[in-house]
Structure formats: C-alpha cells, structure tokens
Nucleic acid binder design. Sequence first.
DNA 1: TATTTTCCTTAAGTTTTTCTTAAATATGGC
DNA 2: GCCATATTTAAGAAAAACTTAAGGAAAATA
Lengths: 220, 220
Amino acid sequence: MRVLLIEDDISLADGTVKALRRAGYAVDHAATGKEGRRYFEAGQLDILILDLGLPDIDGLVLLRELRQLQTGVPVLILTARDALTDKVSGLDAGADDYLTKPFAFEELLARIRVLSRRNTPAREPELKIGNVLINIASHEVQLDGEVQKLSRREFAILRALADRPGQVFSREQLEEKLYSWGDEVTSNTVDVHVHNLRKKLGHTLIKNIRGVGFILGSTE
Amino acid sequence: MRVLLIEDDISLADGTVKALRRAGYAVDHAATGKEGRRYFEAGQLDILILDLGLPDIDGLVLLRELRQLQTGVPVLILTARDALTDKVSGLDAGADDYLTKPFAFEELLARIRVLSRRNTPAREPELKIGNVLINIASHEVQLDGEVQKLSRREFAILRALADRPGQVFSREQLEEKLYSWGDEVTSNTVDVHVHNLRKKLGHTLIKNIRGVGFILGSTE
DNA sequence: TATTTTCCTTAAGTTTTTCTTAAATATGGC
DNA sequence: GCCATATTTAAGAAAAACTTAAGGAAAATA
C-alpha cells in the first residue's frame, strides 16, 4: 500500500511519515505542489494525502488538476484551515475525506484504512456467442461491432437460446419462456420473432432443426 | 438518491431531514436502532447516516450488525461524542465517515456528496456525458457550455442515471431514488420529468429501453 | 405572513413500437 | 409431386412511451 504525502510543514510531515511507515505503508513525501505532481504522475499510488496550504500551488487547484488525470486514487485532504467553505469546496473538488490540523495520528490512520478498503464495482454482465455480443442490461446486441436493438420478445428468445448454445429448444419450450401461465398463445409467434431476429443478426446464428425446434449455432 | 437517517433527537432529525429533502434526497427517518434496522433491511439505500447515541441499541453494535449484511452502503456516523477513540473505533467498525455534533448542514451535505460518489465508477465531481456536463455539487448542468437550470426532481433523476451510465434503470428504481417511504407515487411522473429533461438537454442523452426503463446513452 | 412564482403530480390524449394472428410462399423429405 | 414443416409478409390489436395541460403543493419573495 503506497501513500503519497504532499505537505510543506517539515516537522509535521516527518511525524506523519514516520507514523505511516510504522503502520506498514510505503510513503513518499513531497514538500511542494510541483514535486507532488511529479510523484503523483510517476507512481502507482494507493492513497494521496494532500495539504491545502502549499507554498507554490493552491491545494484545491492542484487537486482539480490531479483529478483531471482520471485516476481513481482516493484523496484525503489535510489542512489547518477550519473554515466550512474550505471543507465543502475541498470535498466537492474531488477529495474523499478531510482532516483538520491538528489531528491525531490515530485518526489519520483510521481514515486511511477506510479509504484503502475501497472496492471496485463489478462490470456489466455481457454474453458472447460467436460474433454476437449480448448486453443483458440494455437489451442491445452487437453484431460485428454494429449495435442492434432487440424488442422484449426477441431478446427473451435469444437469451433462452444463448443460455445453452448447442441445445435444441422446441417452440413449446420457447413459448414457456415468453408467456406466463394463463397467457398461452396459439399462433406462430415464435417463428415470427425468430425471423425478425435473423433479420437483425444474420441467418446463420439461429438454426432450425426440422420437426424439433431451434438452436443457437455456435460453431461453423 | 435515498438516505436513511437513524437519529433519536427529534428536533435535530427534523432539521436534518428537511435540509436533505431540500437538497433533493429521498429521506427515511428512524428514531430508534430497531426501527432503523428494519428500514435498512427493507430498502434500496444509497447512504446511511447513523447516530451513535441511540436509546435502545449501541450505535457501534448496530453498525457492526448492519455491516454483516454485506451491503456496500456507505455509512456516515453522527455523534455528540468527541472522543478520539470513538471516532477511530467507529471508522474501524465499518463507517466511511464521521461527523461530530454540532455540525453545519452544509458540511453534512458535502460529505454525503462524497459518499455518494463512492459506489460509482466515475468519482469525479463533474461528469461529462456527450455534450452534457453535470456538476453534482451545484446542481448545475451545461449543454454545449450553456447552463441549464434543472428542478430538484429532474436533477435527481439525471444524477441517478449518471451514476452508472450504460445501466438501465426501471421506473420503479428511479422512483425509489426520488421518494421517501410513504411518499410513493402512482402516476407517470418519471416519464414527465424525463420528458422535461430531454427538452432541456436534448433528445439523445436519455434513451428508453422499451419494457425495461431508461438509460443514459453516452454514444450515438 | 401574504403573495407570487416555480415545481410536481395527475390524467387523458397522441404517437410510436411491438405483438399476434393468419394467410401466402418456400423448402425439405419421402 | 405431395405432404409436412418452415419462412415470410402484412395488417389490426395491444402495449408502451411520449406529450400536453391543469390544479394543487411547495418554495421564494416581498
């Protein structure tokens, strides 16, 4: 776990660095905004601790700059200023937490522990069959990069087939996926939807097994 | 954005609830730990604000219990106790932030804004989708550089969608972000607000996925 | 507090998209 | 060629989404 401390007050910085090292963090220290920016750009940071009262650059300005870089590094702001507006604008500039001097090392460490247990959210579930990419959430399907919108029924059929590529589904089985109990249908709806699906996704994807049903052709 | 406040001091709770609602949050309020736990288990929470000095359950104990549930809901602890050990153990028990009474509503709102960024992929205070720039803090939205004034509800919907661009939100999900418990709505409000949003921000930004819901479309 | 203004919710009307149906055409197996 | 099954087409019905307007609620202003 690598921490960068940007702080110009040497004695405070020394104490903080020591406390952090003792707690097991790898710590870099920069005394000016410029230097800090170099460290930030260079390194694999896990957490940034930033003093707002720097000699060369306004801390808030620096913070916004660093945020532009789009890294997701959590930032904890550290400052003597106790004014409410500073806190608020610091947080709104992209800081994740705020600590006013003087502070206890214990509390700093606790807040860093909070910041470091950040978890990254899971990605969108997507399904890929051959050259067809299915986005479950948006009901969108990409065929060789081209986006196609599917209707609800079309999507339901494709999804059923895609659940088990290579397995044949009878019309009755597919209808069961589409209609709730009591909603039965007495026409060739499934065929029509399959037809429309093929129009959108090409004629090789969904194959028909005569007398049996439909199958998602994974191979060939 | 849905917030649960667990706080037994009625007058403080009232003021806080009002301030939060005015800021566009859907707020539920519980006066006891037990009640709070029920709300917590029931709902689609985005943020929990928890007072440590509850009459029936020790706040820290409750916090640990709720953490067991493994929901990723950010927790902000609120308390009169100013002792360092309390802060530290609060944070280590799974809180994400800490505010000591008395506090300014402004700061509470700022910290909530930070927490609400937490579970979203883009943690920038400003979000850009196509030619639309969204500033969460100031409730300001720009279309091609031109500032558009959004109403509270419009902004709440846009923010919910913007939290996860590319994810579809059903009308029910959006309503949950807008209304507190007991405030439910039985009309097409969401549609109307979406319509007004599109009038202000153009018709390509918010896409509808028929039968599913709405989605913030970045491309096309 | 009273007044004005803005905003929110409803609900009904309109438009657009999708679904079902049924009939016409095509295809495969015998 | 004949029958059964599959595909295509088109049209009306149904469903979902969009639009509009009005009355009431909430917020802002005086």
